[in-house]
Structures are given as C-alpha cells and as structure tokens.
Amino acid sequence: MSLPIEINEERQEPIYHQIEEQIMTLIVSEHLLAETALPSIRALAAQLGCSVITTRRAYQNLEQRGYIKTVRGKGTFVQQIDTKEKSTQKYKTVHDATKRAIHIAKQHEYSESEVKELFLTIIKEEYDA
C-alpha cells in the first residue's frame, strides 16, 4: 500500500515534518481509519525517494502524538483519535492553510478589503456549487 502524500521541494520545512503533517491530515480527515496498517518505513522511503532516517522520524513523532502505534514484528497502525482532538486538528489545518493564503495575498500587496472580497467570491463559488 502506498500513501497519497508527496514531498514538496519548494517548502522549506524539513521532509519529516511534511510527511508527519500529511499523514496526520489523512488520519484526522478519516481517509485513514483506526487500525489501518501503514507502509513500513522502508516502503514509504522508497515511495517518496527519501531515507528511512526521515520516515522513521516522522513515524516516531506521530507515535508520540498518539496518531499511530507500532507493534513490534507486526507493523505500524493508525490509532483511534477522539472526536475533540480531531476537530482541534481539523481547525488547525484549515486555519494554517487560510493563513498561508492571506500571507501570499500580502506578498502581492493586496489590501485587507481586497482580500476580504476575494475570499467572499471564492466562498460563493465553492459553497453554491
């Protein structure tokens, strides 16, 4: 099994962090359900073209944060996440993405009202469809 994640060479954050965040998003959005087996660190490294040192670190961090669990000799599995934690993480993911969008708008010297107008247009497009 391969995971629908990718490494973005233009993002400045470390690769293990990119992997960690994307797996977390898959778990929180329930694309990966509890008890689902994850690929081995070696298989994931081969898929992404990175080293096992990086994938191991991503898995260790996710395990520490309670998202996954490694059973010796069996593999790595998605943990049950409680609903409150899920909504907190969902909020954080959407919040961060929105913040990034606004940051880009500021780089292009959009004013506050221009950004607001743009957001309202997009909201209309997306939710009315």
Binding site: E9, I15, G49, C50, S51, I53
Partner: peptide
C-alpha cells in the same frame, strides 16, 4: 540512489568520503 539509499559515500580519486545522509544533501 534516490529510490534506495539512506546514506551516500563518494568515491573520488581512490578515496572514499565520509557518509552523508541522503536527505541532508537535499536540504
């Protein structure tokens, strides 16, 4: 190397370099 390796050593003029982690190179 991209598909398989964790560490890389470079053989150059008969000497072998210290190993580097592959992702460190990309960083």
């Amino acid at each position: 190397v991209q598909r398989l390796a964790d560490y890389i050593s470079i053989l150059h003029d008969g000497t072998l370099s210290e190993r580097v982690e592959k992702d460190e190179l990309q960083r």
